[in-house]
Design a protein around this nucleic acid. Structure first.
Lengths: 177, 177
DNA sequence: CATTGACCTAAAGTCAGGTTCAGGTGTTAT
DNA sequence: ATAACACCTGAACCTGACTTTAGGTCAATG
């Protein structure tokens, strides 16, 4: 069975050697062999590394990956745990995507805002615009961006009550969200 | 014009005081007033803070936000820069969402894999499954998860050429991606 | 025999976006 | 007058996933 040095593995996977040593130190290669102190990567370790790369993409942390590796060495008795790990991760990723969608709508709105400001040369009209006056597409983006979720509610009620909208005496204004 | 202490602003925005001091130190309140060393937040500063919260959601870094604040104080001459900032950010967020979609597909596949493993009590059948044998929905997830993009290509060609698929002598195997 | 090159270690450094701490000032309430 | 409270500062600390550094072993090559 062929064995590889750390340098060979680094080249194969286009990873820095330091990263492999770090993974090893973190316990991601439970059965890594050594001879005279030098790491010798087996086929099994290469497969483990493939799995590590894959799990990293799913957004799992190193310590979760280590746990997963441990479970894998324990066989069929840990299917339920492994399934739970991914089920949890699925929820995390789904939430994250939804969050990013809202952010995208916010950014889209901002793009439109400054495009328009550039065309008109000023923000006067823009500043007094209500969503109803915006182009359909932008209004939708704006509204989707401002749908409140528990996670990122921006409660400025006190602020508003204290007169947020009174004309400020400042010469320069900031674009609103 | 009403002025607020740092504690009042923190309460209004549900932010820790330390965060506001940090933002100030980073230059996010260019015109923040002080009396006897004590910060006094004006309406303008509260608006700035609203904008900061908003821009943070768009994924911008503190230093970009600082830059944006600076541009805002420079008036209409910086519309183009501000637009460019958001246009760039839009591309970033769009790419990130696409990336997350692929990750989600990977996680979905993993969920299915372990659900099935739990049902069957082992991975024998699963391990030899080709995409064609998977349920329609899972096959799609699997295939979408494995579409290669420049960003996260996993080039294991050398590895494969060196016999990655030779049966490993290890007693325990790891689930593949 | 000296240098290069591949490997090893422990420990410190890096990045962002804060948070915490130790120590100090100033105003108000008892 | 002394305690409580809100504010201030600079500096250290935090997380995660690495990377870098400093110093050391060992084998082959000129």
């Amino acid at each position: 069975m062929r064995l590889y040095t750390i340098g060979q593995v680094a080249a194969m996977f286009h990873l820095p050697i330091s990263t492999l040593r770090y993974y090893d130190k973190e316990g991601l290669f439970p059965n890594l062999e050594r001879r005279a102190g030098i790491r010798r990567f087996s086929q099994q370790d290469l497969k483990a590394l493939q799995v590590i790369e894959c799990l990293k993409k799913t957004g799992l942390e190193i310590k979760d990956i280590k746990q997963f590796m441990q479970w894998c060495t324990e066989g069929a008795s840990t299917y339920a745990q492994r399934h739970a790990l991914f089920a949890r991760q699925r929820a995390v990723v789904e939430a994250e995507i939804e969050h990013m969608q809202r952010i995208l709508n916010m950014v889209r709105y901002k793009c439109w805002y400054y495009e328009t400001a550039m065309c008109e040369g000023h923000e006067e009209r823009l500043r007094n615009l209500s969503p109803a006056d915006m182009p359909q597409e932008i209004r939708q983006a704006y509204e989707r961006a401002h749908m409140l979720t528990p996670e990122d509610t921006l409660d400025t009620s006190d602020f508003a009550n204290n007169g947020a909208l009174e004309a400020s005496a400042s010469d320069e204004k900031l674009g609103e969200c």
